[in-house]
Design a protein around this nucleic acid. Structure first.
Lengths: 220, 220, 220, 220
DNA sequence: AATGAATGAGCTTTCATTCAT
DNA sequence: AATGAATGAAAGCTCATTCAT
């Protein structure tokens, strides 16, 4: 019964991923050195290349694995919610909650990932589409039920994601610089409300919610 | 009427900017060499440093100068339009028209600019805020007139921009790879319609437009 | 009668030389830019090339002109001194006095000049030889008079200069760093005494001077 | 008994140092490229940076390691010599012998090292002080024995080194240009004799040596 | 599987110098 | 004589990746 085998277990893959998230968040993808990640994961530099093709692959893998988890979580969050319009709200709330709950990961996914040539220009983010397809599915379902008007699910889905993403981006950047952060919760409601009413077949039937206060003033 | 005055005029600044846009769009910011830009602008490498601090400064300057022009153009486009909801539609149409009309520039502003550490992490894009403030102004004006409901102008503005930007991004990326492009015109209408209804005080009064067809299928 | 012609006089040559001494002393020869010198001399960059072949030429000219003055001064200092041994002492005292009285110039001549490839490897410092020949002359004269023994004037001259120069160098470096400086006056006496006795035909006849105290302790 | 083991041994440090001495002597420190050194040492450019911080560090390391050896050798040379005055002569002879026996190294230490900003302005040449302290030690010992008069060991030490160094410098420069070289052996005796008599308590007791002929004529 | 020493490609930027005005 | 905008050469260093052990 081996005592003191603190990190021997072959969880090297995970250790590298976790180390990379921290290092990328701290120094940025471009300034992060493989040797930094290796040191933090307590493996040799070369070992990283047994698990990943190259530095970009580490970043991409972070994206894929974490997106997989996010998709799972999203689906779970939506499980108990039936009304398509309420599902839209749930989606927005879930999205921002993840950003708030996983700062380092959010920084990597929001910022560093976008700074990668490979990701932006060559990679097909299948996982992202799957994530967004959940939204398109909500719309299609709502359209079948007659709750949502005839909107193009694809255009709407990208617009929705763009809105969530931009606000998440601003929040992460502000958070990174320790500037006064605006409320992500309020943002979730605001964005959700615009889209709910924007796609609803009968927007007049939607009860007017009192908007949560205090938004973004500090940024302009 | 001077024919063939190849490089006499002291418009070196503009020549460098224009050359840089082409080179950045073609090779990407990171792979673009100063000497590439200099060659295309028909100046010496060192001359670029008489007009710009460094490579990043060239990129940032492209952003600032072109955004200045876009803001001007946007304001002109809105001049004849009175109805706040119609102004939202005009904004969206204008935004996408610029993307379509200036491919190289759009590629630089959509892609290369985002790949710049300096821009993303250090630069305060005042011009972007000014651009977006036009949208916030539309909302405030509409709220005063009672046409637009109580939405947070800031959150809405970022959501609106995020939606436009994401779709523009997808279009530019698809365009870059010569993949079948979806219709930006249709997207403009779709996004505009969501936001118009999303922020309208009385959405039921908005006539249902027949959505333009054919969206995004090629991307998924 | 021209009023207010502060710098119009065609003393540009001198203005450039003086500016260069200051700039070289302050930033070092390598880091000094021609434009720095031009700015301080209040002339255009190109103007410097009307008066000097290149940057090295400015440095060399400083050496030549200032050495010319030093040689003159040295000869004047020696004028009233007849005894060859005393002339050696006078030489040493004069050398160190110049170092102490002209800090910026000393820094340029002691440090920056030596850092110049051109000066060290290509230039024939005729002026330096003339300066040292004064010492060789003292020796030869002393030998004719029988006061100085059969030493090789050339070897002795370089040894003497080396000794003066090394101590001057240490003092300038210490002075530059604002470290506690040792006494140049005491050093003059010490070095002079070694050489006086070292070359004297009859050293026993030389009265033993009480050495000045406090030397160099701070440097080791 | 392995013949032909060209680069297997992990003596890369030494190989780089030796290559650097040759390259620095041949092309000068400033014109020597890292790739030149790497090629001569038969390692990759980057390998040099595994062993040295930068180009200056290579130069400084040459100084430190070689000075360490010189100090050792000096101490050995002095081992059998008891008389302080004779020890001074031994010091001078040793110094010049090293210059003559290691031409490339002498060129680097005499010339290139002095052309280095880092070395001249920032570096504290501890090893040099140790080398010179040997001389100061000789003086102190001689003073205790009453053989050497009351001279300041510090001033004398720098003067002695300056004298040796200047003559070595002139010889190396002349040697470099293939000009007629003067005799370093004769110079050793000449300089030694000046300092021996210069610091001796009883110079009259020193037998007059016939000076070695032919000095320096070719230089003036 | 793991290591880590070794590799080598890649390019911005400065600034002395020129020369048209 | 004077200007100063324009030129263009030149190389150190980093670090992702490899591969012998």
């Amino acid at each position: 019964m081996p005592v003191d085998r603190p990190r021997t277990t072959a969880d090297k893959h995970d250790r590298i991923i976790d180390a990379a998230i921290e290092v990328f968040a701290e120094k940025g993808f471009h300034h992060a050195r493989i040797s930094d990640i290796a040191a933090k994961a307590e493996v040799a530099d070369g070992t990283i290349y047994l698990y990943f093709r190259n530095k970009d692959d580490v970043l991409i893998t972070i994206f894929e694995e974490k997106m997989g988890m996010l998709i799972e979580g999203l689906k779970q969050s939506l499980e108990g919610v039936d009304d398509p319009l309420e599902r839209i709200r749930t989606f927005a709330r879930y999205h921002f909650k993840q950003v708030k709950d996983h700062e380092a990961l959010a920084e990597v996914l929001q910022i560093e990932l976008r700074l990668s040539n490979k990701f932006l220009k060559e990679y097909r983010p299948t996982q992202l589409w799957e994530y967004l397809n959940v939204f398109a599915g909500i719309l299609r379902d709502g359209q079948e039920r007659g709750v949502i008007r005839e909107v193009d699910p694809f255009a709407s889905m990208w617009a929705f994601f763009g809105a969530l993403d931009e606000i998440a981006m601003q929040w992460v950047l502000a958070n990174k610089e320790r500037k006064l952060r605006f409320s992500l919760d309020a943002s979730a409601e605001a964005v959700a409300e615009i889209f709910v009413r924007g796609v609803a077949a009968n927007p007049s039937a939607i009860p007017v919610a009192t908007p949560l206060p205090s938004q973004f003033e500090s940024l302009s």
